[in-house]
């Protein structure tokens, strides 16, 4: 099942983080990426809410790692983009680009 609705902000951030992180994309680095690079404060719960939604929408898929001793013998959940996810990102970017096209931000003086 694919989604028809456009990606929201957090979803875009999460998908971009997944692309950047590649194999290593699980909760902690995803959030770190968004906070570090995107300068966006976001809670782990919000990240997972987005991941969950997009997984159900078929944009991404999840895979469990081997059990890890540093996590008390539990696995990490890694995520990666499915083609639908890539397409959704492209759409989002296209929409944004079209909206930006030909826009000149007023300078400070003009804004006043």
């Amino acid at each position: 099942m694919t989604r028809s609705t456009a990606l929201n902000d957090v979803e875009q951030f999460v998908l971009l983080a997944l692309l950047r992180l590649g194999e290593d994309a699980y909760g902690v680095p995803i959030r770190a990426e968004i906070e570090g690079r995107g300068r966006r404060a976001v809670s782990m719960a919000a990240v997972y809410a987005a991941l969950d939604r997009m997984q159900r929408g078929g944009l991404i898929e999840a895979q469990l790692s081997e059990p890890l001793p540093e996590r008390g013998g539990r696995a990490r959940k890694h995520f990666r983009l499915r083609p639908a996810g890539t397409r959704a990102l492209e759409d989002a970017r296209g929409a944004m680009d079209r909206m930006w096209d030909g826009v000149d931000l007023p300078t400070d003086a003009e804004a006043r």
């Binding site: 699980y26 909760g27 959030r31 770190a32 782990m44 719960a45 540093e70 996590r71 539990r74 990490r76």
Partner: peptide, 10 residues
Amino acid sequence: EYILDDLAED
């Protein structure tokens, strides 16, 4: 469980 583990790791 994943969130809790991730948070603990973080």
